[in-house]
Amino acid sequence: MQQVTRPGTDPAPSRWSYRVHRLLLRPGFRLALRAGLPFCLSLGLGLNYMSDKARQEQFMLALSDLREQIENRPEFRVDLLVVEGADRAVEEEIREILPVQFPVSSFDLDLDDLRRIIADLPAVASVDLRIQKGGILAAKLRQRAPVALWRSREGLSVIDIEGARISSADSRATRADLPVIVGAGADRAVVQALEVLAALAPLEPRLRGLVRMGERRWDVVLDRGQRILLPEEYPVQALERVIVLSQVQDLLARDLAVVDMRLAARPTLKMNKHAANEWWRVMNNQ
C-alpha cells in the first residue's frame, strides 16, 4: 500500500500567529492582559450592575441595615450617665441639658459635642467625658470654686478665682461667707482682691467690700463711710502700713473719711468736716 504523505507540510507559523506570539512576549502587554483586563472587566460589570437606580437603593438599604445591626449590638449600647466631681445641682443640670435618651448606641453619641455642652455650663471648669466599659457614659468634672460676690450692673453674682461667673445671688445675705467686690473690671482682678482681703484680716469686722476704681486699683470700703485708697502697685504693702498705723495710733477709729495711700511717699488723710473744724479750732487756740 502506498504511503500517503501530504506534500508541502510546513510548520511555519502564519504571519498573524507570529505577531500575536511576539505581542504576548511584550511584558507590558502581558501585564495589561493579566491585571488590567480583569480589573477593567470587573469594574465595567460592577458599574453596569450598579447603574440601575432601584438596585442602588436596595444596595444602600442593605448596607444601612447591616450598619444598624452592628450599632445595636449590646456591646455598643450606653445605658447610664455617671457624673463625678459635681454637686447635686450641677449634676441635675447636666442631666437636664444633655440631649441624650438612654439607652443609646455609642455610634450615635457625639462625645465632642456633649463635652462642649457640659463645658459651656458656667459652674464647670473642665470636663472629661468618655464611654466606659459596661455601657457607662462617665463625665468627670472639675467645678468652679466660688470665691467672691461681684456686684455689677447686672446684679450680684458669684464668681470664681478667674472671674468667671458661676451663678447669680439674690442678695448679699445668701452668701454671707463671700466677700463683695464692686466695680467695672473687678472680675478681672479677683486674685489681687483676694490678696488684699487676706491682708485685711484685722479689719474684718469693719469691712464692707472692695471697689475697683478706674479698672486699675482697689478701694477698701469700711463701715462709717471710711475708705482706704490703695495704689495700683503693691496694694497689700500699702494696706499693711495703714493697718499698722491703725493698730498703733488707732488711726481708723478716729473721725476720718479717707486714707489715701495712692502715693506711697505721701500718704494723705481726709478728715470729716466736724473733725477738721475741731482740729482748726484747737490749732488756732494754741
Binding site: 510548520p11 504571519r15 507570529y18 506570539h21 511576539r22
Partner: peptide, 18 residues
C-alpha cells in the same frame, strides 16, 4: 520569510523573551 519566522518564533519561545 516563513522559515525565518519559524526559527525566530521557536527561539523566542525558548528564551521567553521578545
Amino acid at each position: 520569510e516563513r522559515a525565518i519566522r519559524t526559527a525566530i518564533q521557536a527561539a523566542q519561545k525558548m528564551a521567553k523573551i521578545r
